[in-house]
Design a protein around this nucleic acid. Structure first.
Length: 743
DNA sequence: CCTCGGTGATTTTTT
DNA sequence: ATCACCGAGG
């Protein structure tokens, strides 16, 4: 490790800094991972830190894996002993050890968003008819929001209205339910460690002493709970180093607070601030274009990212007529690059804002025989068959897990339907036991009628048999095989529509279990099962991403964070897609969309394509689109307009955008619009937009003046909830109601 | 208890 | 366009 040769002065400083807190503002492609890994290696090799005194937090498991490999290489060790992982994985690890101090069992399971939603729905149902109008996702959002901020969800319940009380009850019920199931949601992982440190100072002290050096990557995307956690972790003499870039903050919607980064020195006095501004990744043109986009946001730290790299090609902008043709363009361009310049497929990435956009690309890639991998969209562990089997394992691991039990009770169908389930749940509630306890109790007491009793008895017997396997420390893979055999799950899948594919998934899942075992063979059976389940609960899509295969990568912009490709296609550059329609509700959300665009652009090393479709089909309706307002922030001399007779959007259409071009000097030069060429589909007059925003003042013919409190639906289905000055609240169809905007 | 067909929402983004 | 959810019928 030669720090002088392999690092620039700022990186070197980040590596060598000793003592107080360190904040590294690292622009895109500025070698922050290098700085972090070198710092860790340096701590061990030259400053006498033991590996187990170091904790490194990354944003994804994959980043953790990568970092681990790089540190291992630098240290020349097979195993480092450094804790590297996401906040969630780290917290799960800590909780496995100490959660009993909080009254939970060490065999807790982790509920994902889908599990969480099921519980929420059940809780709302129990609240009766009054809860009908409360949307389960809204409750879920509330729970997340609270936990992300490190506070008790009950505190976030709005005013003391009737709905508020129901909500309060539902939230309390949710918490009780999870507690009884010995289950934690994602937010709990962080929250409970906070609580653990508060209630058990000895545990806190233990970790404070242990982690003498803490490093956190992607700090701009941490939420308040994580920030608080870090404060609790940090010890007097310890070293803390966080790295981030405010321009790449794209998880605000998930509770991330960029102020954690920007006001870091307030919470950690005496912070030394460094900036990494040399970009090693992209060409000058790409960097300048991306910089133009970033500058469109008023609230950001001023910075000057520069590069020694070549000027490079201009950015290609393609306007296709339809999303289909956009995909066609991308596919053919990829083929051309592969054929003419020998660019490997794995060097090319195709990004989009929403998962739904991936489909047209997949279809075209299949047609052109382009090897490709879609990262994310249909997550492996969320497929029904995989989740079913997973539920069996989870239940075996933790019999209190009622969500999992409910899922497997009638899967494959064994005649224990909704009615029986409700009866059992009722019985459980009255007896104050878990669902499983209720089943055992009901069978013993003989409170059930004939048919159902027999079915339940068979289920019970089957579970008992596998439970014995589980107690005998059988490995996850064998357990899985036992479950499949005893439940007849394979036969059940065979009878289904796309049974073959589902069986493949099932087998893939068994293989995954086998692979996992091979890695963690030193753990005893039950513990290995726990580790296996935990891993599955915490893996993200990007973690599955394998860059060895020579495939074009298709992914959302969020997934693309932290990656780089020589060639990048940033697609769907349309108003309403990027920025997403939903982000027009607030300036902050809109700013985040701009950063998302910036993140996408800065993934590109050599060549960047931007594309859009003039017509896009959404909700089964074909809609005319406007170009993304972000395009106007790109200096026009950096852009190449693709195609001979392809025209471009008119100046007016761009001017339509909701963000003013920031650099007066650079305005795109638009030619004729190809929108006027045949064949053209019918153009709906209003488009799928929302005319009203929350907070707008309106005037109603008879009810007078009011304020928009909520907007739902778009186009002709747009509905607004109005709070009128006369005190009434009304929900109105925009198209048919006699209202007009007055502000 | 299961299956079919109608209906209405649904699309951000994910540890 | 597609999917989840609901009610009716087998």
């Amino acid at each position: 490790m030669d720090l002088d040769r392999e690092l620039n002065p700022q990186q070197r400083e980040a590596v060598l800094h000793e003592g107080g807190p360190l904040l590294v503002l690292a622009g895109a492609g500025s070698g922050k991972t290098r700085a972090l890994t070198y710092r860790m290696a340096h701590l061990v090799l030259h400053r006498g830190f033991a590996p187990w005194n170091i904790l490194a937090i990354t944003f994804t498991n994959k980043a953790a894996e990568e970092m681990r490999l790089r540190v291992q290489r630098l240290l020349g060790l097979e195993k480092t002993g450094i804790w590297i992982g996401t906040f969630h994985a780290t917290c799960a690890r800590i909780l496995r050890q100490h959660i009993e101090r909080l009254g939970y069992g060490a065999n807790f399971v982790i509920y994902d968003a889908a599990d969480q939603l099921r519980v929420v729905k059940a809780c709302l149902k129990r609240q009766g008819a009054g809860a009908k109008q409360i949307r389960p996702v809204a409750v879920q959002g509330l729970l997340d929001k609270a936990k992300n901020q490190g506070i008790n969800p009950a505190l976030l319940v709005p005013e003391q209205s009737a709905t508020g009380r129901i909500l309060e009850e539902a939230v309390a019920d949710y918490e009780r339910h999870l507690r009884e199931a010995n289950a934690l949601d994602f937010g709990d992982l962080i929250l409970l460690v906070l609580r653990l440190f508060d209630t058990c100072p000895d545990v806190r002290a233990k970790y404070q002493e242990r982690f003498h050096s803490i490093l956190v990557d992607e700090y701009q995307d941490t939420n308040r709970a994580q920030h608080l956690l870090l404060q609790k972790f940090a010890s007097e003499g310890g070293e803390l180093c966080v790295v981030g870039d405010d321009d790449q903050s794209i998880y605000r919607w998930r509770g991330a607070e960029v102020t954690n980064l920007l006001a870091f020195e307030k919470d950690f006095p005496g912070t030394r601030i460094l900036a990494l501004e040399e970009n090693y990744r992209s060409t000058q043109n790409i960097l300048r274009a991306a910089d133009g986009v970033a500058r469109g946001n008023p609230e950001r730290r001023e910075k000057r990212l520069w590069t020694r790299n070549e000027e490079g090609d201009r950015i290609v902008y393609e306007e296709a007529v339809t999303s289909d043709e956009e995909a066609n363009f991308v596919a053919r361009e990829i083929q051309r690059l592969a054929a003419e310049f020998d660019i490997p497929y794995r060097h090319m990435g195709v990004f989009f804002r929403t998962n739904a956009q991936s489909r047209s690309f997949e279809e075209k890639f299949v047609f052109y025989r382009i090897p490709h991998a879609v990262i994310g969209s249909v997550r492996f562990y969320e497929r029904a068959e995989v989740k079913d089997l997973l539920a069996y394992l989870r239940f075996l691991y933790n019999p209190s897990d009622s969500v999992s039990l409910l899922r497997i009770l009638n899967q494959p169908p064994r005649g224990i339907g909704a009615a029986s389930q409700a009866t059992l749940q009722d019985y459980a509630d009255r007896q104050g036991t878990s669902l499983w306890g209720a089943i055992e109790g009901a069978l013993e007491q003989g409170v059930l009628s004939g048919a159902i009793r027999g079915r339940l008895d068979r289920f019970h017997g089957m579970i008992r048999t596998v439970q014995e396997d589980c107690e005998n420390q059988v490995s996850p893979e064998k357990l899985l095989k036992a479950v499949i055999k005893r439940t007849g799950y394979k036969a059940y899948l065979e009878g289904k529509e796309d049974g073959e594919r589902r069986i493949e998934n099932m087998e893939e899942f068994v293989r995954t279990a086998g692979q996992f075992q091979a890695l963690e063979d030193e753990k005893p059976g039950k513990e290995m099962l726990g580790a296996f389940l935990q891993r599955i609960a915490l893996v993200s899509d990007i973690d599955q991403y394998e860059d060895r295969a020579n495939c074009v990568s298709l992914m959302t912009l969020h997934c693309a964070k932290g990656l780089e490709f020589p060639v990048v296609f940033l697609t769907g550059m349309e108003d309403g897609v990027l920025p997403h329609q939903r982000s027009y509700t607030s300036p902050e959300a809109l700013a985040e969309e701009r950063r998302l665009c910036y993140v996408g652009m800065t993934r590109a090393k050599k060549k960047l394509y931007l594309s859009r479709a003039c017509f896009r089909t959404s909700y089964g309706e074909r809609q005319r689109t406007d170009p993304s307002p972000f395009l106007a922030s790109i200096p026009s001399d950096l852009v190449d307009f693709q195609g001979e007779d392809d025209g471009f959007a008119t100046r007016e259409e761009i001017g339509h955008g909701h963000v003013e071009p920031t650099d007066g000097d650079f305005v795109l030069d638009y030619g004729e619009s190809q929108l006027d060429r045949p064949p053209l589909p019918p153009i709906p007059s209003s488009g799928r937009k929302q005319v009203y925003r929350i907070g707008d003042m309106i005037e109603h013919e008879s009810l007078g003046i009011g304020t928009v409190r909520n907007v739902e639906g778009t186009g002709y289905k747009e509905k607004v909830t109005i709070q009128f000055a006369v005190g009434k609240i009304r929900k109105l169809m925009v198209q048919v109601s006699p209202i007009k905007k007055i502000s």
